[in-house]
Design a protein around this nucleic acid. Structure first.
Lengths: 200, 200
DNA sequence: GTCTATATTTTGATAGAC
DNA sequence: GTCTATCAAAATATAGAC
């Protein structure tokens, strides 16, 4: 009972997820190596880094957990998209919509995915392209090639063309050189990206 | 005379350019923050970092000089290209050829340009897009829009589409997910990139 | 979970001899 | 230009009290 009262009075404790969110925010704005654990602690209103070490073994493990969270959730979203859509073009369109929506609603996630150089600070994790999420994208492309929706060239080239257009557009939005919300560019960017890989 | 003999016997001294080349190599392979001055000294066969400080004020100035060298030389190349070619399409094609050639012949330069996050370790320099070289590219695009070669949409979108395809392809070559030399993909990538921005 | 205090290590950087 | 020696600062990480 005493404890309950104490809890209701004292400032809410910092949770693991809050730490991860603060870390994501700083990693994507300042970069992994330029954000110190002290920076993260400060952003959370903590006096020092001890609370962080209470939750995570070390700095790299924080980055690893962020990495896993983001790629897992992306993989799940892609599963849903594949279940709900038949054609490769529909699946890729839905993935494009997802990425543009995330750019407006959770820009840090897209920065983590497409702006950061993950292999620089996560040398022990799979490169993004070997991740479950991207392997599924790759399967969508291969299936699109087989059924004649997509041009029959090296799937990695297809990947480079399509996601080159998409990610470059999103990065331009994130850096502000494109001034509107990502959503404003969704349809024309999709058309441009699809055009590079569609069987004419 | 004594000195001449001494010079001819002793191991060749390390020049400023050699230091910059070693730094470029390590920055582009390990990343700026993960390469220490000791790493660079070692690669040059030096026992310590003093020789480096003899040539450069600090680590950032090394990066700055690399940055200036690369962007200046790129700017000069683009000047030449604009002089020799009339149409925007020809100019962009030549720039594309230049970038693909550099990917095979000087991959570290392309890594520096398109893979590294320059603003992370060069916060005081202009972002790449405001650089003389890229401003000229931008002018080529604007002129192409005016004379009807290129679709009349936001030039920054044109930029994202065209260079999205080009740089994503080059990065795929540099990481090895595309297994041939960049040159092998030049023509089809140019077509795909141009197709996204050409007035049909 | 949060604090104080402290240990450890690395790296950037300087001084001065040769 | 290169070496030895050394410093100072910063950041990661740990121990232990509350």
């Amino acid at each position: 009972m005493d404890q309950e009262i104490e809890e209701s009075i004292q400032v809410k404790a910092v949770t693991k997820d809050e730490i991860l969110l603060a870390a994501l925010k700083l990693f994507t704005s300042k970069g992994y190596f330029k954000t110190s654990l002290t920076d993260i602690a400060e952003l959370l209103g903590l006096q020092n880094t001890s609370t962080i070490y209470h939750h995570f073994k070390d700095k790299q493990m924080m980055a690893t957990e962020i990495y896993i969270n983001i790629f897992d959730s992306l993989s799940i979203s892609i599963d849903e998209i594949r279940r709900k859509n038949q054609r490769s073009s529909e699946q890729l369109k839905s993935i494009t919509e997802l990425l543009f929506r995330l750019t407006d609603e959770a820009p840090d996630v897209i920065r983590f995915l497409f702006v950061l150089k993950l292999d620089e600070f996560l040398p022990d994790e799979k490169p993004a392209l070997e991740t479950a999420a991207f392997v599924k994208v790759f399967k969508i492309i291969q299936s699109g090639i087989r059924n004649g929706e997509i041009r029959d060239i090296d799937p990695q080239l297809i990947n480079a063309y399509f996601f080159g257009v998409i990610t470059h557009t999103l990065c331009s939005v994130l850096t502000g050189v494109l001034s509107k919300k990502a959503d404003a560019y969704l349809n024309q960017s999709w058309s441009a990206a699809w055009q590079t890989i569609a069987k004419r």
